[in-house]
Amino acid sequence: MSESESLLPSDEDLLARCRRGDERAFRSVVERYHGRLLATATGMLGPGMDAEAVVQDGLLRFYRNLEKFEGRSALGTYLTRIVMNQALKLLRQRQRWYRRFLSSDDPEHGVAEGSEEARIGQLEDEERARQIRAAVQQLKPEFRSVVVLRFLNEYSTEECARVLGIPQGTVMSRLSRALDKLAPLLKDLNQLSRSQ
């Protein structure tokens, strides 16, 4: 740990200050975890305003319910779980909306797909990042969530299990099935990498 890191307040200290109404402490929590939470939301929902809204909503829910955080998991894990739950809730709402839309008798009222691009991690090749993101977005939410947490957020299997509230074996099983489903979607990408 560097000297500058040792000068930063711990999560426990920030939480205690937040519970006493210190708004600067809460801003510090937001600054510390915003990037990780946005990566989680973007991995689940794709880039755009929905991901940012889910993060803001998750942080607001946490702030309003500070007393409910018992500290049984790390603060970052707890916040990620809130954001993941909000993203899954939004995905369910989208599915209901799409079903209603598809059952509509009026085919003229379509929804334009967003074309906003974002980088995944430090990938240099934006086309590769787009293909990976598109493949991940095709997974069902229960598989997408483990891929996002394990590979994008680099959580351990145990941390994924805590965030999702499922057994570690289920995380491993879903991850294995997700990778099986991603393999054919990313086949062309793998062949392109080998030819370079």
Rank of each mutant, 00 (worst) to 15 (best):
Leu102Ala: 09
Phe26Ala: 01
Arg27Met: 14
Val136Thr: 04
Lys140His: 10
Pro167Glu: 11
Phe26Cys: 04
Leu152Ala: 14
Arg92Met: 09
Phe26Arg: 03
Glu158Ala: 11
Leu8Lys: 15
Gly169Met: 09
Tyr33Leu: 07
Val30Asn: 07
Asp50Leu: 02
Arg36Gly: 08
Pro141Lys: 13
Asp13Met: 06
Asp125Ile: 01
Lys181Ser: 05
Glu67Ala: 15
Phe143Val: 10
Lys181Gln: 15
Leu37Pro: 01
Val148Arg: 08
Gln138Glu: 10
Pro184Gln: 05
Phe62Ile: 03
Arg24Asn: 13
Asp50Gln: 12
Met172Glu: 15
Gln137Asn: 08
Phe101Thr: 07
Tyr63Ala: 10
Gln122Asp: 12
Gly76Ala: 02
Arg94Gly: 09
Leu91Gly: 04
Ala134Gln: 14
Lys187Asn: 13
Cys160Ser: 10
Lys181Trp: 03
Leu14Met: 14
Val171Arg: 06
Asn153Cys: 13
Phe69Pro: 00
Gln131His: 11
Thr40His: 09
Leu8Ile: 09
Ala51Cys: 06
Pro107Ala: 11
Trp97Phe: 15
Arg133Lys: 07
Gln168Ala: 08
Val55Gly: 02
Arg64Val: 09
Gly71Met: 01
Gly169Thr: 03
Thr157Gly: 06
Asp11Thr: 05
Lys68Gln: 08
Leu149Tyr: 00
Arg130Met: 00
Arg128Tyr: 08
Leu102Ser: 04
Arg119His: 00
Asp188Val: 09
Gly21Pro: 01
Arg177Asp: 03
Gln196Ile: 05
Leu179Ile: 02
His34Arg: 09
Ser176Asp: 01
Trp97Gly: 11
Glu113Ala: 15
Ala51Pro: 05
Tyr155Val: 08
Thr170Lys: 07
Val55Cys: 06
Arg61Gln: 14
Pro167Tyr: 09
Arg27Tyr: 06
Val146Leu: 13
Glu127Gln: 14
Asp125Gln: 09
Thr170Gly: 07
Ser145Tyr: 05
Arg133Cys: 03
Ser145Asn: 04
Val148Asn: 05
Gln191Cys: 07
Asn65Lys: 08
Met49Ala: 14
Leu91Asn: 12
Ser193Tyr: 06
Gln168Lys: 15
Met172Trp: 10
Asp57Ala: 11
Glu142Gln: 13
Ala135Trp: 09
Cys160Tyr: 08
Arg27Glu: 15
Leu60Asp: 08
